[in-house]
Nucleic acid binder design. Sequence first.
DNA 1: AACGCTGTTCCGCTAAGCGAAACAGCGTTA
DNA 2: TAACGCTGTTTCGCTTAGCGGAACAGCGTT
Lengths: 258, 258
Amino acid sequence: MSKRSPLVQSVERAVSILKSFSASEPELGVGEISRRVGIPKSTVFRLLATLEEDNLISQDPDTGLYRLGIELLVLANNAMISTDLQRVARPILRHLARDLNETVTLTILDAQDVVNLELFASPERMIMRVGWVGRRMPVHATSSGKAIIAFKTEEEQKNILPSELEGYTPQTVTNHSQLKTDLLQVREKGYAIALEELESGLNALAVPIRNHEGEVIACVSVSGPSHRFTEKYVYEIIPSVLKTSTQLSSELGYRNGF
Amino acid sequence: MSKRSPLVQSVERAVSILKSFSASEPELGVGEISRRVGIPKSTVFRLLATLEEDNLISQDPDTGLYRLGIELLVLANNAMISTDLQRVARPILRHLARDLNETVTLTILDAQDVVNLELFASPERMIMRVGWVGRRMPVHATSSGKAIIAFKTEEEQKNILPSELEGYTPQTVTNHSQLKTDLLQVREKGYAIALEELESGLNALAVPIRNHEGEVIACVSVSGPSHRFTEKYVYEIIPSVLKTSTQLSSELGYRNGF
DNA sequence: AACGCTGTTCCGCTAAGCGAAACAGCGTTA
DNA sequence: TAACGCTGTTTCGCTTAGCGGAACAGCGTT
């Protein structure tokens, strides 16, 4: 959301520096950061020094490279105990994860991606645990993304989806009209399935969660490796996940079934 | 660490605003933040607007109160795939969590607190899952804190420990000389135990992890509710956790036993 | 030795950021 | 109903915080 009041440029720059790191590129130098965010090296250096003072950034003394610091974990921890949705969802999704013995997440739409807010999984099932909470994922290549945007207007969908749908695997839907058809089906059936669309070997099922106004605000997603979480098994657990979503939506004040 | 180069005041202020939120007080108003961080309201307002633009902060439109935003979860996610320690520790601690069927964490010392970097637990065991990764805890009232500082010099211990040891439960050690005795025992036995010291009903065992230089850089901690994770059971699993720590330390290049 | 890159420091300049004061709105009280 | 006390938000004159180009120190490579 664009605020009318002037913003603080130094803070905007500091945040864009924080955002320049990724899970796939956790370590960057001053020059590389300068190039990526378009800020002169001396300015980047000063901003990094400030972030380092508060442990949002740390520097490897051997290589001189910078990385995100653990104070971000602390701030994220403080950020997590937040909404009614999360408080209501936790016991219900924990129960579902125990029943299914697969990875269960609570996922929301944020700008043009979906992001996991909560994760429930057994340690032996957490093969892909790294990165789940806080992980941003493309809307078109995930069951979560489809489960949420299927219930948006066409105008909203157009604003959310990029013009070029990136293909992450051979199974990713990269054709806009095919995606549109898929979204109509999601709307009709009340759930979305993604079979190896985001990553090879990863299957997922997602069901939307509605608030008291009937608006889709999040979804429950179940995922696992395709050798275990087979297409057949995905279909078997649909009733269970639909029921969980209905229970959650109901506790949030939603009064209609599908 | 104090940098000599001048820091950016606006960024320092923005970070102190982020730090003013806590798990126990997730929502604050402009005036309250202004009082807490000692910055005039108009300045706080402008800094909040900037942080909101990047979703590090969000404002409840109904109440006007502010809370930490989900971009912090995204940044924390990107921060997590970081050190050799974590990469080495993950499979080993996952295995331990499966064997023990209790909550297992990887914990480090950060300034004057201990902070959990990784968490492994079954969904049905995650009663206290909320807040673990990124949670800051007092050194003197946790098995993790004791397991780590026991191997510091007395000078370092003095710098780490607050002059007044806060009592969180009747069992918390709040006397400096008693704590000193406890730390000597930890050093001798190679592990630390905290029985209901941080929270009533919470027991924990922690064992230090050494790097290739023999320096204690983290610890493995196992915790659970005292009705299940009884004192008797805590003692039963000591060999298992010691073995895990030895394995971890060994993979980090440490070449001696205790 | 020269080169190319890195992270880091310096310092003159200027506009970004500050903060006091005021405003608009809301809930409470008399 | 008016006054009050608090909130979040806006304005604008002032000044120094922050900028960024240039230079430096160090390191690895040729």
